[in-house]
Nucleic acid binder design. Structure first.
Length: 642
RNA sequence: GCCAACGUAGCUCAGUCGGCUAGAGCGGCUGACUUGUAAUCAGCAGGUUGAGGGUUCAAGUCCCUCCGUUGGCUCCA
């Protein structure tokens, strides 16, 4: 039996061997730092025997693959602690997987409910288990035996899980008195990773279905090094500080009146200034990329929505209004409106592609529990467009959109991740059509050199799509842009164009939004920039501060000059000390403070204090203005005045 | 909708075991000060303690219902 190592070396064994033994042969320190192995691309337990030819790589605690292993083990340690505290006959276990930044475990605890206050207690017990450094052992059991085993222990959820496993045998892991059904792999012992924190508690339906009982879920996270845990916790704290729901009202951008308009943010003048800039940018680029802006009604006759299929598929999320016994729907999407425009006149193949764009205000009913600041709302404005084109134009059109996205996101300094979602089980239309459209999306991505992942079966039922997830400065991802192919709408509305040979043909329809929702994008920007917007976006771009009352006239003069250049400027001549006003404007994150007093007035100059705290003295107003204008018109992310 | 926590002045928060007229800082208003790079000083106003019901001699505090928020679940054309 041959084992090939990453360095190309080959070790030969006559019988079964574990990664642990191999690691020990290589070096003692590797053995000590190892947590598992990758055997033929599969994660493998450190002490699980191998009895076949394979490629093997030892995973050290610091390797990326280790994360999954030790977090999974940590979830077992947590489950063990919970059982110790609440009693083995009281606790029924659900599932306990790793997730993006940590892990969770679901519990059904008889006669007790866990609250946040119980977390320290559970953490204590987890520390004990870690200290005990219990050996973690893997073993297999026949399915029937396993079911019997779990039945005896009253673990009905586990029984259900085992019944759902197709294999003949299932695997278990044991650490001390704790045994759990698990695919693994796990750490060799509970003492290997020490740095963890339990974060929160929530309810979670068994198997995610509302029909099933609700279990209690504990979320936690774990890291190999203390510094990593600390920096993750710090990131959470930083995210909390940047929370747009806090910064929004604080910076007078928007607020939400939950009594009369839950899920419907109210924008204040400063907030509208930012949204206005986002819209101006969007309009400029839409023009550049060949779109025509249109406007469609907020409410339209119910029959339109019956024809579009929304009535059937989306009614629960729609708002309605009625007058003179006619029911109107408040639009949840803009596509039917754009289709009316397409169908308004006969279309020739020469006119295609037709690209219709709208800042479409849509309303969608969302259940109360899901509303979240600007990110999950009941009304929002999409930078929505529909491209009607011939089949042979699909790749070019999608490429055009990708190019657009690159330019748009580049302005904010966002990188992104793209996912291509393919045909779901429940779909409409021919597989051949799906394949053609999916290929068009794929071709465009490849042509544009955009890396992407494929999400099999995740497409909308009416067509495949590409989603773009932007990554913000804290590394969090937000789904913004989406490009969706649609074969349903053209059918339902009998869209046609006259082809060169005189025949009538059906156009392809592409739905796409780039910001997604401008309000939501705004929310993301607030958090990304922590409220300190680049100058072009800042609600107030400069504020003029006279040192005292005596210089208010000069300050006003300066402010007028700035205002004449269409720069958003304010005069802060409140009867407060200079220090006080500086502090206030600093906290409002105004990019530039213009300070004028005796010195400046005499020389027709200004002093500038930047948001970063830099002090620049003796500048001519014109000089400042030309630099500031440059910074704004180029939409620079960084301050250029220093 | 479901699970859990929370809801006191515009904001951030205190309020003990149920016990006097519910407090503080910031903010606001008024006045003084006339200010040179992150908070000048003084005075004043501001509350149906989310709403409703209950227990009690007595409720911000305990119980119930509702509303809302937060973290999740669910949903998401």
């Amino acid at each position: 039996m041959k084992v090939k190592l990453p360095d190309g070396g080959i070790k030969e064994y006559s019988g079964a061997v574990t990664p642990g033994q191999i690691a020990k042969e290589i070096s003692e320190s590797l053995y000590r730092n190892a947590v598992g192995a990758v055997v033929n691309d599969q994660l493998w337990d450190f002490e699980r025997p191998i009895d076949f030819d394979c490629e093997l790589r030892i995973i050290k605690l610091s390797d990326p693959e280790a994360v999954e292993i030790y977090r999974h083990t940590m979830s077992h340690i947590m489950a063990q602690a919970v059982i110790r505290i609440y009693g083995t006959d009281k606790v029924k276990l659900g599932i306990g997987p790793t997730i993006e930044n940590g892990f969770y475990y679901d519990f059904d605890i008889e006669g007790a409910k866990i609250t946040e206050e119980d977390l320290p207690k559970i953490e204590e017990e987890m520390k004990n288990i870690i200290k005990e450094d219990l050996k973690i052992e893997r073993f297999e059991m026949g399915k029937d035996e396993a079911i019997e085993f779990m039945k005896n222990r009253g673990q009905n959820y586990k029984v259900e899980l085992i019944e759902g496993i197709p294999d003949e045998k299932v695997t278990f892991y044991r650490q001390g008195e704790f045994i759990d059904l698990c695919r693994g792999p796990h750490l060799p012992s509970t003492g290997k990773v020490k740095h963890f924190k339990l974060l929160s508690i929530s309810g979670a339906y068994w198997k995610g279905s509302e029909k099933n009982p609700m279990l209690q879920r504990i979320y936690g996270t774990a890291f190999a090094k203390k510094e990593e845990l600390d920096s993750y916790l710090k990131m959470l704290e930083e995210a909390k500080k940047r929370d747009h729901r806090k910064l929004g009202p604080q910076l007078d951008l928007f607020f939400i009146n939950t009594e009369v308009a839950a899920g419907m943010p109210i924008f204040l003048p400063y907030g509208m200034a930012v949204l206005g800039e986002l819209m101006t940018l969007s309009r400029e680029l839409h023009k550049k990329y060949g779109y025509k802006e249109v406007g469609t009604p907020l409410i339209m006759h119910e029959k339109l929505w019956r024809q579009s299929g929304h009535w059937e598929h989306y009614k629960d999320n729609m708002y309605f209004t009625e007058k003179e016994e006619i029911t109107y729907a408040v639009k949840p999407m803009n596509c039917p409106g754009h289709i009316l425009i397409y169908n308004n006149k006969p279309v020739s193949y020469r006119e295609l592609p037709i690209r219709l764009f709208e800042f479409g205000r849509v309303h969608r009913y969302e259940r109360g529990g899901v509303l979240h600041g600007l990110l999950r709302v009941r009304t929002f404005t999409q930078d929505d467009a529909h491209v009607f084109c011939r089949e042979d134009q699909m790749v070019d059109e999608v490429s055009n959109i990708v190019r657009f996205i690159n330019e748009l996101y580049g302005i904010f300094g966002f990188s992104y991740r793209a996912t291509l979602s393919t045909m779901p089980e429940d779909h409409m239309g021919e597989k051949a059509t799906w394949d053609k459209a999916t290929e068009a999306l794929r071709d465009a991505l490849e042509k544009m050199g955009v890396p992407y992942e494929v999400a099999e079966g995740e497409g909308a039922f009416y067509g495949p799509k590409i989603d773009f997830h932007v990554r913000d400065i804290l590394g969090r991802e937000w789904q913004c842009a989406t490009v969706q192919m649609d074969f349903q709408m053209p059918e339902r509305f009998e869209l046609v164009y006259k082809d060169s040979d005189g025949s009538e043909r059906r156009p392809v329809m592409i739905h796409r939004a780039l910001y997604g929702s401008i309000e939501r994008f705004f929310g993301i920007l607030i958090e990304h920039f922590a409220g300190a917007f680049p100058t072009w976006l800042a609600p107030v771009q400069a504020v003029v501060l006279p040192v005292s009352e005596k210089y208010v006239d000069y300050a006003r003069e300066v402010a007028v000059k700035i205002d004449e250049e269409k720069i958003r400027v304010e005069l802060d001549d409140r009867n407060e000390t200079l220090g006080y006003r500086i502090r206030e404007n600093q906290m409002k994150k105004v990019p530039y403070m213009i300070i004028v007093g005796e010195k400046e007035k005499g020389l027709s100059q200004i002093s500038i204090r930047t948001r970063e705290g830099k002090d620049i003295q003796g500048v001519r107003v014109e000089e400042f203005l030309s630099k500031l204008k440059e910074e704004i018109t180029t939409r620079s992310i960084k301050s250029t005045i220093e």
